[in-house]
């Protein structure tokens, strides 16, 4: 799989309010019983969506106003908990191409990076502004722009500054987010490192 360059993600927004949304909620464990990632999008947030009281408003993933949205807007510590890559896979397969949030769990962030799902941080007040904007105008077009490190949106006062570690940004922009190829580029260096470690191959005698 050669990865493509990702310099910007454009589309409508999907607001998902709440802190500490864990991967068990994004994709409940019973859907991990699969040997492929195909079809996981059908189960994204399944229990949250099914478990809503009758009178509650539709879950954002069921709300027709947000159908086809590409940019998910979340709050703090999104994707905490289990390391399942099935969670970002399900979001990506649902059609989400970027997530803007206050913060992300590290494993979720790494998993998302590895499959080309852009996760960027923004200040809590800016995240709220974007969520408000999208709630009030679900048709608004947003753009996550990695060159300028901002989110632009129709109807938004100014731009929202975003944050992304330089290495992740480079990986998206240069199209090297699929790391395996890069890791195999200099395999001799891997073998040299292995040979220097006494526990690999049990070289304690010469350590």
């Amino acid at each position: 799989m050669s990865s493509s360059r990702i310099t910007r993600v454009e589309g409508r927004g999907l607001p998902l309010a709440g802190h500490d949304i864990d991967t068990d909620r994004i994709l409940p464990a019973r859907f991990l019983k699969t040997v492929t990632f195909e079809g996981l999008e059908q189960h994204v947030f399944e229990d949250d969506r099914a478990g809503r009281p009758e009178e509650a408003p539709a879950h954002p993933f069921d709300d027709p106003r947000f159908g086809g949205a590409r940019i998910l807007i979340v709050n703090r510590n999104f994707g905490c908990g289990s390391s399942r890559e099935h969670a970002p896979q399900a979001l990506r397969r649902w059609g989400i191409e970027a997530v803007v949030g206050e913060s992300f769990s590290e494993i979720f962030f790494g998993n998302a990076l590895a499959i080309g799902l852009v996760c960027v941080k923004a200040a809590p007040s800016d995240v709220e502004r974007l969520q408000d904007l999208v709630v009030h105008d679900p048709g608004a077009r947003l753009a996550v722009v990695l060159d300028a490190m901002v989110v632009r949106a129709e109807g938004l006062d100014g731009e929202v500054i975003i944050d992304l570690p330089a290495s992740a940004r480079d990986a998206f922009v240069s199209g090297t987010w699929d790391a395996t190829g890069m890791l195999l580029d200099d395999y001799a260096a891997v073998e040299r490192t292995a040979a220097s470690l006494p526990y690999v191959g049990g070289r304690w005698g010469s350590a």
Binding site: S83, E85, I107, A179
Partner: peptide, 19 residues
């Protein structure tokens, strides 16, 4: 702890790209 794509990385290259 790593995700499945990184499991692939380790299987294929015995290494990971990390911060």
């Amino acid at each position: 702890g790593i995700g499945t794509t990184q499991v692939r990385d380790v299987l294929a290259s015995q290494s990971l790209a990390l911060e």
